[in-house]
């Protein structure tokens, strides 16, 4: 399959990249590995005038440990993140999530953490060839005002499929977005729009440069659950992450997220609220499952390789297992 024509830039400084982005706005896409982007280009899902590769920008790779935050530059290769001593020490949950992405070659050579976080949401009716889509008509993402998976839907229902998404959210991470005019740090809780056609709150002139994970104030216990038909080369059918701090027999802190259900990850705040401050007990896992099931029921549509019903049920199972493991039930 052939790539469409586009201009290719590989600036060596962030400033040059930002200048390009500032000029070209949404007509330029950031190439941060390309394991997702290049396939989408070949399928003619995107028609950018230019790609701006960040591979030559030195200060967009690497990991820094500050007294209170782990800063992962967006262009850092997935394998590099997973093998970094500070990540392994503080956030083994992230290591687990990265190890489940694609295959070894993707983790080692191409895929980046920023790329995984900003993966284009997926849909069985969208991630198809140009030929395929011609016979089916357009959707919100391809120029029309409808959704092929959910007729009449006002926005695109494609699936946020990154393995790191629920994990970074559960770790209360934030991202740094940089534009020519300055930079801002946005918590991930405010990063996802919920609209498949424009899934991230990022301005056209901005580039995501860092992922910032606060170091835990106490030992965390965690769980990452993901369901796929294969143990490699497979996007999750649904995934869930739980991060908890257990202290003096009580749940001091809990963040519980399910993802790969709809265009944005879903924080199960109701479950968190019920569980926080209480003593861990098996009932909590079942409650989390009920809440996840309800939440998933509201967002999952028929657009993945297994049915909507199955994915909704599995959201419950993944949430239950995540809580069970994180609360050591």
């Amino acid at each position: 399959m052939r790539l469409p024509q586009f201009e290719y830039f590989a600036p060596v400084s962030l400033e040059d990249a930002l200048k390009l982005k500032d000029q070209m706005r949404t007509s330029a896409w950031i190439l941060a590995g390309g394991t997702d982007l290049v396939v989408n280009l070949k399928h003619r899902l995107l028609a950018p005038a230019a790609l701006i590769s960040i591979r030559n920008i030195r200060n967009l790779t690497g990991i820094d440990l500050t007294p209170d935050t782990l800063v992962i530059r967006a262009g850092t290769a997935l394998a590099q993140v997973a093998s970094h001593p500070a990540v392994k020490e503080h956030f083994p949950i992230l290591v687990k999530a990265i190890n489940s992405i694609g295959a070894m070659a993707i983790q080692h050579f191409r895929g980046t953490i920023g790329g995984n976080l900003c993966l284009t949401p997926r849909c069985l009716f969208y991630n198809q060839s140009l030929f395929w889509r011609k016979g089916k008509g357009s959707c919100h993402r391809t120029g029309a005002k409808d959704c092929l998976a959910l007729k009449g839907s006002e926005s695109c229902q494609s699936i946020c499929s990154g393995d790191t998404v629920p994990v970074l959210l559960a770790l209360s991470a934030s991202v740094r977005l940089v534009g020519l005019g300055g930079s801002r740090v946005v918590p991930l809780t405010e990063f996802f729009s919920g609209l498949g056609e424009s899934p991230y709150h990022i301005l056209p002139e901005e580039i995501l440069t860092e992922i910032r994970i606060p170091l835990p104030w106490a030992p965390i216990s965690w769980s990452y659950q993901r369901l796929g038909m294969r143990s490699a080369v497979d996007f999750p059918l649904v995934n869930a992450a739980a991060v908890a701090v257990l202290d003096k027999g009580k749940v001091e802190h809990l963040r519980l997220v399910i993802s790969a259900v709809g265009p944005a990850p879903v924080i199960l705040r109701e479950a968190e609220k019920e569980i926080k401050g209480a003593q861990p007990e098996p009932r909590m896992a079942d409650r989390a499952a009920e809440i996840a099931l309800r939440a998933a029921g509201g967002v999952v549509v028929e657009n993945a390789i297994q049915s909507r019903d199955y994915r909704v049920k599995m959201a419950g199972v993944m949430a239950r297992r995540a809580v069970k493991e994180a609360l050591r039930l």
Binding site: G135, R230, D234, F235, I305
Partner: peptide, 17 residues
């Protein structure tokens, strides 16, 4: 329309499994 004409969504097994 075949919904899974490619290797990503047609689930041939991988060695690991």
């Amino acid at each position: 329309h075949c919904l899974n004409p490619t290797m990503l969504e047609y689930k041939i097994p991988v060695m690991k499994d």
